[in-house]
């Protein structure tokens, strides 16, 4: 509607009165149209009432509550009643000894997971794509996607059965090889814990992350392979010169979009697996927020850290989305 009103104003520039009159007419007509449009969509607005109310209560009230990051929150005085303290909570966080270790652990885990599972899922996708045995392919596909649907509580149970120092299967093998009776406790060793986190995540999510690459692979034009075969390229060369370049845009997109969530290192996983002996290498921003906020009742400080992560995460999402749109013309919004 705006588009149609513009040329009228510009073409009647010679007579100002006329143009104003025309503009007024158009405005009135637009208003009437808008009114009619709103009336026509009354039912849609009716449908929107409950979800919008839900969003305001469950998504916007928390944002309003986040003001306690700038307050000395006292449960008795409530969110509004507590006294303002400015940036004191943020200063306490930035100056504390755990600040850098939290950032380091968070980034280490999310980058490590990406470095480990991205190549693995690409290789798995290519193997599934190239596999000439339909039954093997079907079984691998079914089994590889399954762990994504298991919760981290269940995963913890599986890891216990595997890694328990007393009678886990892995320790049975270690004991047999070394000929000792002492098992190794993977989950309480600061050296082994990060690897357990990285590999258990790769085990759980490898198949699921391969789906997007399989979809991209199935879109490759078959004539490319035919031409390459005529030219005498073998399977390795076809993978290297056709398959990988063909899915490069998807790889780049996945990589960039993951960048946007770099501060989400997997709360559920780490929360289930970690324990006091490995806090120094296991603590990520989210687990720390949980412990200091809900177990030690430092609500203001914990909210400040959560808010810091939220703002930083939002900037990263916008940045990664911007880069993604530039590079491969796809983004999340």
């Amino acid at each position: 509607m705006k588009k149609t009103s513009q040329p009228v104003v510009t073409t009647t520039k010679s007579g100002l009165a006329v143009s104003q009159e025309a503009a007024a007419v158009y405005k009135a007509r637009n208003k009437a149209k808008l009114g009619a449009e709103i009336k026509r969509h009354a039912g849609v607005y009716l449908l929107a009432i409950i979800p919008v109310a839900y969003y305001i209560v469950f998504k916007y009230v928390p944002i309003w509550n986040a003001q306690i990051a700038f307050k000395d929150f006292m449960a008795r005085q409530g969110v509004l009643g507590s006294a303002w303290v400015g940036l004191a909570n943020f200063k306490e966080f930035f100056n504390s000894f755990y600040f850098w270790s939290l950032i380091r652990n968070t980034v280490m885990y999310s980058v490590g997971k990406l470095l480990l599972s991205l190549p693995l899922s690409i290789i798995l996708a290519i193997a599934i794509y190239e596999c000439t045995r339909p039954i093997l392919r079907k079984i691998v596909q079914t089994l590889a996607y399954l762990p994504h649907f298991l919760s981290w509580v269940i995963m913890y149970g599986i890891l216990l059965a595997l890694l328990a120092p007393g009678d886990g299967v892995v320790n049975d093998v270690i004991k047999a090889i070394r000929g000792t009776n002492v098992g190794f406790d993977f989950l309480t060793s600061t050296k082994a814990f990060p690897w357990v986190v990285l590999f258990s995540d790769a085990w759980k999510e490898m198949g699921w992350s391969a789906i997007i690459f399989i979809a991209a692979l199935m879109g490759i034009d078959g004539s490319l392979f035919e031409a390459a075969m005529v030219e005498g390229a073998n399977s390795w060369q076809r993978v290297w010169y056709i398959t990988l370049p063909a899915i490069r845009p998807v790889i780049v997109t996945v990589l960039i979009l993951k960048l946007g969530t770099i501060l989400d290192a997997g709360f559920n996983q780490i929360f289930m697996l970690y324990s006091a002996p490995v806090y120094s290498v296991a603590d990520i921003i989210d687990t720390w927020v949980y412990r200091s906020g809900l177990l030690e009742f430092k609500f203001g400080l914990a909210t400040a850290v959560g808010l810091f992560k939220g703002v930083f995460g939002m900037l990263l999402v916008f940045l990664s989305n911007f880069i993604s749109k530039k590079v491969s013309e796809t983004g999340i919004f």
């Binding site: 928390p62 509550n65 306690i68 927020v289 909210t303 850290v305 959560g306």
Partner: peptide
């Protein structure tokens, strides 16, 4: 709906709600 999607204030404000 997009603002809360990209801007996550964390678990404490949600707990207070």
């Amino acid at each position: 709906i997009m603002i809360p999607y990209v801007f996550n204030v964390g678990m404490i404000p949600a707990y207070l709600l």
